[in-house]
Nucleic acid binder design. Structure first.
Length: 570
RNA sequence: GCGGCGGUCGUCUAGCCUGGACUAGGACGUCGGCCUUCCAAGCCGGUGAUCCCGGGUUCAAAUCCCGGCCGCCGCACCA
């Protein structure tokens, strides 16, 4: 792929107009970090709001937003598996100091698959096969793990290690039980969070698409695998179509997505659990609302070896970009009960929940009871041991013995049958313990910011128009006096003040000619522009000019705010 | 990390090969002013460059050499 103009235009306008640029610029820049300027910050917030609308506000009865720390103690990432699995094995040349991915190097030299082997095993293979530095031929050191987690120290004491979160998920898992209680103990329940994460990527590239620090919009959706409760929600979307490639398709060499209804994907088992499919449809609606047409979105199932350590099934959601082709903007993972189970194990807390049955389940059951006064008199200090042995025996077997004989031999003691009674009791099961399963859709905000810019930027008569959905625009409206006449300026400023007071992000501009102002506003994506002309002074109307069509209409100066609310509504 | 290509005002770029007249030129933007009754019109003035950084060669380096940083593309990994 050669240089293509769309990405260049995005970064050019992005930098020139103050959307985003590389961080630490004056010190030469730092790879994988981006700063957002005033327009970029506003747009990012609008994207987040759009996400909240689709996933949280429209699902408020089953969704709760939380916020948790960026830095976590070591035990959390031991439990989550990131300390162990979020790594690449790396080996250093003792001579020239260059570093290599150990597994890749071995695979290149020997042709053997070594994925998943331990560092010690990899070191041993390097020694046995006498693998040397491919650049200088020097001897290689021991294989070490390069962990993609950013490590730090919490407080002044050494050994108190902390890690920057590489995903938001752990915050949700750790707090699940508490929030479940706050939310009146109902399943399904989603815990959502928007926040920054860090991943110490070996080599970040591609502008804002691959960052060492970025923002994720994510939720963990907890449900009871036996009673997922998706029916009501699925009703709305079961006939909607998704474009997807299954792992099976990929293994058989297919690279084109199939279009299929959600109901079909679920019936055929291509999507393993209904909630995963439900959120994939909502995710498609969300990405479309950012200005990406459906044919430029698809879902690709990851192959087992491509999946993260916690995942039972993962679909990436991809959007077509001009320079980088299909780019993952979201991951949709079915995490099963992996995380809650692991945190249960490490924290020794019971993270299961109790689900009450509609009616208690009554079970008749035979139990063994003993006459303690008989046992005590006969066996004294051995009585306890004998009682234990008896009650742990199968009641049915014991019952037969009691009916047949006068004595029963237990642990070498002869127990008279009158000391043993088999009783039938009723046991009430009013519910069951469940470790909920989890489906996780996770979006990268900066990637979406880029995608919105790329899809929005259009060229028209030698001008750049940022034709993004109005709800995402940093400014909703611009106010201009047609020419710099005191009366026009006065009225335009009054309209501007009024809009400002109602909290509408508005732009006032009276420099240069009217055409120049329209052009400037178009380039930063202002969807509507109000112009005050001489007729405005006479009859109180103004023109509204549309960014995308350049058409105009006249409305009352007092109706501008109302006009906007209508245009910006969902 | 490896390989290929690149890095000059806010942005795009001229100059680099063939070292010196470069006090680094232009366009656009931006700012101030004039003009202007609807699409970057015109005029005047201002602003703005560590020539990516460090070292070397040379009387002399944006230009040649070495190292590093950063970017793009390819390999790998990922939201």
């Amino acid at each position: 792929m050669t240089q293509s103009s769309a990405a260049d235009r995005v970064f050019e306008v992005g930098k020139r107009r103050g959307f985003f640029w590389q961080s630490y610029e004056i010190y030469g820049g730092l790879s994988g970090m981006y700063d957002l300027g005033p327009y970029g910050a506003a747009m990012k917030e609008n994207i987040i709001n759009e996400w909240k609308y689709y996933f949280i506000r429209r699902h408020q009865e089953i969704m709760a937003e939380i916020e948790t720390p960026i830095i976590g103690p070591e035990i959390v990432y031991a439990a989550s598996g990131h300390l162990e699995s979020f790594t690449d094995p790396i080996v250093t040349c003792q001579n020239c100091g260059r570093k290599f991915r150990a597994d890749q190097l071995i695979e290149e030299v020997t042709g053997d698959k070594v994925e998943g082997k331990s560092n010690d095993e990899l070191s041993r293979i390097i020694r046995e096969k006498n693998i040397r530095c491919p650049i200088c031929g020097g001897e290689l050191g021991e294989v070490k793990s390069f962990n993609l987690l950013f490590k730090t120290q919490i407080g002044p004491y050494e050994g108190s290690n902390g890690y920057v979160r590489p995903e938001l998920a752990q915050g949700m898992f750790l707090n699940f039980k508490r929030v479940y209680g706050v939310m009146r103990e109902k399943l399904p329940l989603g815990l959502a969070q928007v926040g920054r994460v860090g991943r110490n990527e070996i080599s970040p590239r591609q502008g804002m698409l691959r960052l060492r620090e970025f923002t994720i919009m994510e939720f963990e959706f907890f449900f009871d695998p036996q009673e997922p409760g998706h029916e009501k929600y699925l009703e709305r979307v079961k006939d909607k179509t998704l474009r997807l490639i299954s792992a099976e398709d990929r293994l058989s060499g297919r690279s084109e997505p199939r279009k299929m209804m959600l109901s079909e994907a679920l019936e055929t088992g291509i999507i393993k659990t209904p909630w995963l499919g439900y959120w994939m449809v909502v995710s498609q609606e969300f990405i479309r609302s950012l200005g990406v047409p459906e044919e430029n979105i698809y879902f690709e199932e990851k192959l087992p070896e491509e999946r993260a350590h916690y995942s039972r099934q993962t679909f990436d959601q991809l959007v077509k970009t001009e320079r980088w082709g299909w780019v993952e903007v979201a991951g949709h993972a079915y995490r099963g009960d992996y995380d809650l189970s692991r945190h249960s194990l490490y924290s020794k807390q019971d993270l299961s929940i109790f689900r009450q049955f509609e009616k208690p389940f009554i079970m008749k059951k035979k139990v063994v009871k003993v006459n303690r006064s008989i046992l005590g008199k006969l066996f004294r200090e051995k009585a306890g041991e004998i009682e234990g042995a008896l009650t742990s025996m199968n009641p049915e077997v014991l019952k037969d013995l009691v009916n047949e004989r006068r004595e029963i031999e237990v642990n070498g003691f002869k127990v008279p049958t009158e000391a043993v009674v088999i009783e039938e009791v009723e046991e009430r099961e009013s519910g069951r313990k469940v470790i909920p399963h989890v489906v996780e859709p996770s979006f990268g905000v900066e990637r979406l910011l880029y995608v919105v810019m790329e899809y929005g930027l259009k060229e028209k008569e030698d001008r750049l128009i940022l034709s993004i959905p109005p709800r995402l625009s940093p400014f909703k409206i611009a106010i201009f006096p047609l020419v710099n006449d005191e009366r026009l300026e006065g009225m335009a400023k009054r309209i501007f003040e009024e809009l400002k007071q109602s909290g509408i992000p508005a732009l006032y501009d009276d420099s240069g000619s009217i055409g120049r102002r329209y052009a400037r506003a178009d380039e930063v994506g202002v969807p509507f522009a109000v112009t005050v002309d001489f007729r405005s002074i006479e009859d109180g109307t103004v023109t509204v000019r549309y960014r995308d069509s350049w058409e105009q209409e006249r409305i009352g100066a007092s109706e501008v705010a109302e006009f906007l609310w209508k245009k910006l509504a969902h």
